[in-house]
Amino acid sequence: MLVLGIETSCDDSCIALVDGTGKILANVVSSQVDIHRQFGGVVPEVASRKHLELLPFVLHSALSGAQITLDAIDLITVTRGPGLLGSLLMGMCFAKTLALAKSKPLLGVNHLEGHLFAIRLDYPTLEPPFIALIVSGGHTELVDVAEWGRYQVLGGTRDDAAGEAYDKVAKFLGLGYPGGAIIDRLSEQGNPQRFFFVGGLETEDTLDFSFSGLKTAVVRTFSRFSKEEKQNFQSIVDLVASFQESVVRILLKKTITALKITGYRRVVLGGGVAANRCLRKKMKEGGEQRGFQVFFPSPSLCTDNAAMIAICGLFHFLQGRRDSLHVEPDPHFSL
């Protein structure tokens, strides 16, 4: 059994090949290959049209890397949503074309469910129930996974996603992109106790998140710095370390509350922020202290990828689900 996964819900065009046991044969993400050189032209940074231009190259790269032809594929899976409509349309159109031309079954997958399934690529036997925390640039979701296919969203962000707050703080401080990885690295040299930031909703009785106020507090603290302090490396790294400390503390706190409510003893992380080293460390420590197990996908499977779409689609295919060629993207597709 060979499954092709296609994911275009946001910026990256991703294609992967996964076999029936969940083994990854190829996992290509457009931002990580030198498409500019292959393409020989200017590709827009964001927005949907670029998927159309990149997908054939990404597909070629995946197939040739795994030395597999399109004819050998048994199932085509594609992200239906949530995401940007124009981007989703490109991926789905590409998937439908392949399915039609090669007479292969087609299955639309929920992007967030894909993030839940990413853990199965590293831990094939892991089964629910567990609490999942999906944290990325676009999502911050706390999910009760009672069994595969049965989910309840316990909490989400009411303004900025966690990863978005990271990127905006990094850009504001002139630290560059991607903000999450840069702040994570710099924070190791900083004093996380120097500043104390309270997150919105942190002390309130809700599993929802709010990171906008935290971002604003960092901006405010920086603008109060003296001219010398603004140039001082140590002050900046203390500031970002304190910011990161707060984000991680809030994520951990709400996760622990979700465990208490459900009685579960396992946590699964997903999404780009799940690659954050500080979050991984503090989650692990929290688990050791409180007696819960924590599972993270490997970093390349935390960020958006198509292998997670393929393995999620494979599960539903084996349950007997099929989609017709009329399946449409759903920008609001909920879990």
Partner: peptide, 14 residues
């Protein structure tokens, strides 16, 4: 209003 989230990453929320 609680459902209104920042569209920075998604670019458009409908």
């Amino acid at each position: 209003p609680q459902e209104v989230r920042s569209p920075t990453f998604n670019l458009i929320n409908e």
